[in-house]
Computed example of a mutant assay.
Amino acid sequence: MDGSNLERCPLPQPLPPAGGEPASFRGDDYPPPRTHPLPQAGGDRGEGPRHFRENRPTRRARELRLNPTDAERRLWRALSRRQVAGVRFNRQVPVGPYIADFAARSEKLIVEVDGGQHDERAAYDEARTHYLETQGWRVIRFWNNDVLGNLEGVVLTIERSLAAPPSPRSPPACGRGSARSSRDPD
């Protein structure tokens, strides 16, 4: 049986609307596309924008990733693609209210590259480092001119930091790690 003798069945036609008029196939006669049933922001309660996200530094971190300094760009070429001790580093990583220049999350190591402005902001940097260390991170810092002039030495220092075990943290004052448990007699 050849295809030319086959009787073609008519294609199914859409059902006419309730008014009885046939539906046309012009684009303006189609119903508007369905939107997603949930609101775009605010979850399923319709609360509006999620304010807790506005305070997170992710937008600023993205801007910093797009506009690195020369020293950051050069160090990133050395740290990216697991080139240092097989450890993955990320750039401009939000950690609490701060943004770390480079972070190895698996090793809890932060690498900071400081320019001249950090010389004037020593107290801020000290408080920042203290916060990061209380969160379990190790922080090492390099000056821009060290990265630009001695990249091999900087990478070697990072490798040594990765090889060294992290220093033990003091136990928390209360909770599961406290020295005294509820089962200890008075």
Score class of each variant (00 low, 15 high):
residue 24 S to D: 11
residue 62 R to V: 14
residue 104 A to N: 14
residue 60 R to G: 02
residue 158 I to L: 00
residue 114 D to A: 01
residue 177 G to P: 13
residue 12 P to A: 07
residue 4 S to W: 11
residue 35 T to S: 08
residue 55 N to E: 10
residue 59 R to K: 07
residue 17 P to Y: 09
residue 174 C to D: 14
residue 96 G to K: 08
residue 120 E to K: 10
residue 29 D to Y: 00
residue 81 R to Q: 05
residue 71 A to C: 01
residue 48 G to A: 02
residue 180 R to L: 12
residue 61 A to F: 02
residue 129 T to N: 12
residue 107 E to G: 02
residue 161 S to N: 06
residue 29 D to N: 11
residue 149 G to A: 08
residue 101 D to R: 03
residue 157 T to G: 02
residue 118 H to M: 00
residue 144 N to S: 09
residue 184 D to R: 12
residue 134 T to P: 00
residue 71 A to F: 02
residue 133 E to H: 05
residue 65 R to D: 08
residue 146 D to L: 05
residue 155 V to C: 05
residue 168 P to S: 12
residue 127 A to K: 11
residue 67 N to D: 15
residue 65 R to L: 13
residue 143 W to S: 06
residue 84 V to T: 04
residue 48 G to P: 15
residue 27 G to H: 04
residue 87 V to S: 03
residue 86 G to P: 12
residue 82 R to F: 03
residue 173 A to K: 12
residue 62 R to F: 15
residue 147 V to F: 05
residue 101 D to A: 02
residue 129 T to C: 14
residue 83 Q to Y: 14
residue 23 A to C: 06
residue 67 N to V: 14
residue 175 G to M: 06
residue 24 S to Y: 10
residue 114 D to T: 00
residue 60 R to Y: 01
residue 128 R to Q: 08
residue 64 L to H: 04
residue 56 R to Y: 11
residue 121 R to G: 11
residue 172 P to Y: 01
residue 87 V to Y: 05
residue 68 P to T: 05
residue 132 L to W: 00
residue 180 R to I: 04
residue 46 G to H: 00
residue 155 V to K: 02
residue 155 V to F: 04
residue 8 R to W: 02
residue 163 A to S: 11
residue 16 P to A: 15
residue 32 P to G: 05
residue 172 P to F: 03
residue 26 R to K: 14
residue 166 P to K: 06
residue 103 A to I: 10
residue 183 R to I: 12
residue 43 G to H: 10
residue 42 G to L: 05
residue 51 H to P: 15
residue 129 T to S: 07
residue 44 D to G: 13
residue 116 G to W: 04
residue 141 R to A: 10
residue 72 E to I: 09
residue 109 L to H: 11
residue 29 D to S: 13
residue 158 I to T: 09
residue 72 E to D: 10
residue 175 G to F: 14
residue 68 P to C: 04
residue 35 T to L: 06
residue 40 Q to L: 03
residue 61 A to H: 10
residue 173 A to W: 13
residue 138 R to L: 01
residue 112 E to S: 03
residue 8 R to P: 05
residue 110 I to Q: 02
residue 94 P to E: 11
residue 136 G to I: 07
residue 72 E to H: 08
residue 176 R to E: 15
residue 26 R to G: 01
residue 148 L to V: 05
residue 30 Y to Q: 08
residue 54 E to S: 15
residue 147 V to K: 00
residue 142 F to A: 06
residue 166 P to I: 01
residue 48 G to F: 04
residue 141 R to G: 05
residue 155 V to H: 03
residue 136 G to L: 02
residue 70 D to Y: 03
residue 10 P to S: 09
residue 65 R to T: 11
residue 161 S to C: 00
residue 50 R to P: 11
residue 52 F to G: 14
residue 67 N to S: 13
residue 65 R to M: 05
residue 48 G to N: 09
residue 146 D to E: 10
residue 4 S to V: 05
residue 177 G to H: 06
residue 163 A to H: 09
residue 25 F to S: 15
